[in-house]
Design a protein around this nucleic acid. Structure first.
Lengths: 199, 199, 199, 199
DNA sequence: TATGAATGAGGCTTCATTCAT
DNA sequence: AATGAATGAAGCCTCATTCAT
């Protein structure tokens, strides 16, 4: 029954979407399996037909998110243009700073505490490493062309930090209350990122 | 009297230290009041003589951390030298990236969900705002002297982002495993930060 | 499906019965959720599938009790005969003075302290009010026929007081020990109630 | 040191008063030893120099209340006038219906659950019994003079019930909300009580 | 496969009472 | 005698997970 299987897959997507939405709404891990089930309109037990545990469900979310980034990066790297790569990374991560932060948090927690999930992380890290390997030579060339003294690793770390930090700022209650204006901040940040390693 | 009161104060510090240590070890809010009590070697109930709730205990941790930063910043601002201010901020935050990230997370969560704690946050934000006010003119002057086109706000946001992001990178399981060398990264980051707004 | 749902309903009744029995045995609110669960032979958590909180559980008990009275009253009022109405009220309340007192106490406590339960009370009071409205004209007529000078409200209050007070007496440790004979007291009380407003 | 002893006694009264006030304010046994101590302005431990336990403290409250009634009754009984006796009882009990109900509840609970306190209750009951013994002949005479067929015991029970019930009504949330007017109710009740056994 | 009732470990918090100072 | 910090049993409630239907 292909139809049945399709319905099963669709349900799985619905569960993941509901979980992600709830996670972002609550900004927290205070979501429960019951809440997810209710939002999807299914029973609690059903979720365990799709995922072995709550942790595994969350992990699938992370993998989907990272896979999305992998695709964007792949496309950008293919152009060979460093600014485009930066732009892709920046855009993907900061289209929803909350999601980025939340997922990073979840990733670190899961990586640190759940031994069972190690294999999944190995795969995740493999994807990232391969991107790094692809990007490194482009960056080296870019830095040389700009006469910059930065090493590619430092350059990439700085970019990473700027993106990560931008997300954190945008998410910060203090920033929101006293400095405001997300759009302006994002624009300035992107410009700063693009400016790194230029001189 | 003084002896007993001193013991009481000391125990409060012991509780806070135990809580912070556990928080960092678990990297998570999965700590329990019981765990804290056990580590300090006291009964669960005793903790409630010092703090009204688990949230309030955590908040006191945040306040102590921020107060420490406030002192450093005050000292650095008094010199009127922007690089020194940056250095102070950078050093304080990144002496323990885990603590910085953890506390920021806790702060955002508490600020978002606990109405009762609002007054505490008002005080916290007040301190930060006053620092911003003190730093702004220094930065404006600094940027002018360097012929930079950045606005002070964007400059400070970029610094903030770099620090925040550096912490996240250092804390990342992926980074630790595949890029390594914290010291080198920190040095490069500090240099990048100091380089911002220079041209 | 029906089997399982029926079992679920049955368990709910079992919980309510166990709670009521324990409440009467302990004569007190010193019952715990654990005690109830143990008596029913289920786990603590299960109770929370049926009731949102301990208070809500108790409230359901009150509502069931009052609903029972409402039915009796409805029947009696339909006869249009005041003595029959009195008899119905008297019998219902005093078939278990302990229950009556206990429930009244619980009702007052819950009404006073739990905002969340307000709507339930609104419903409860609505039933009572409607009974009052139905009874008033009967009583007025009855008092006129007996040439009594009492107002209907005072008459009903006196009846209410007698019933309530009888329950308290029957429940009193002192009365039980030194005046004894419940049946004789009940008979005398009923007669006194019936005698009210006769001359 | 008589002065010191006097201060000790005074403190004991202060504790009792604070406890009673809190009990009435909270309408409940949800008061804590700490609350009492705080209101009196002393330390928790000090209360245990005066009372062996919380229950004993409450018991002393009951005894003081009943002793006050005993004095009033004694005075009224000395007049030999039944209506005056009724009036005394009625006035004492209903000057604070809440106190009456609360104390009766406490009395029943303590009598039922605390074996250690039995001797105290024996004394309490002894006082009440002696009043009954003094009142019985007066009532018998009174009923005979009024040509009533009630037995003295039934008459006294009815009066008791009316008083008890009046307190309950006045305390009832439902009554307060939908029938109101305490003063009118009290007057009508007193009149009804006085009317008992008249024909 | 889907359901959802049941479980029970575990978390937070309260508070009468004790006891060293 | 007064203090008040410390105790720890006990209570309420949550929720990931299991399993019979």
């Amino acid at each position: 029954m292909t139809t049945r299987q399709a319905a099963f897959r669709a349900r799985e997507q619905a569960i993941l979407q509901a979980a992600e939405a709830l996670l972002l709404e609550l900004g927290d891990e205070s979501i429960t399996i019951e809440m997810i089930a209710e939002r999807v309109g299914i029973a609690k037990g059903t979720i365990y037909k799709h995922f072995q545990s709550k942790d595994e469900l969350i992990l699938q979310l992370l993998i989907a998110y990272e896979t999305g980034l992998a695709e964007e990066m792949h496309r950008a790297i293919a152009t060979g243009d460093v600014p485009q790569v930066l732009q892709a990374y920046f855009t993907y991560r900061l289209s929803s700073p909350e999601k980025h932060l939340l997922f990073e948090r979840l990733e670190n927690r899961l990586a640190a505490t759940r031994r069972t999930l190690r294999p999944y992380f190995a795969r995740l890290y493999f994807i990232r490493k391969s991107h790094l390997r692809d990007v490194m030579p482009l960056v080296a060339e870019f830095l040389k062309a700009n006469g910059s003294a930065m090493t590619p690793r430092d350059y990439l770390s700085a970019v990473w930090a700027m993106v990560q930090g931008s997300a954190a700022i945008l998410h910060s209650t203090f920033y929101q209350r006293y400095l405001g204006d997300r759009q302006a901040l994002l624009a300035a940040m992107l410009q700063t990122v693009q400016g790194l390693g230029r001189t």
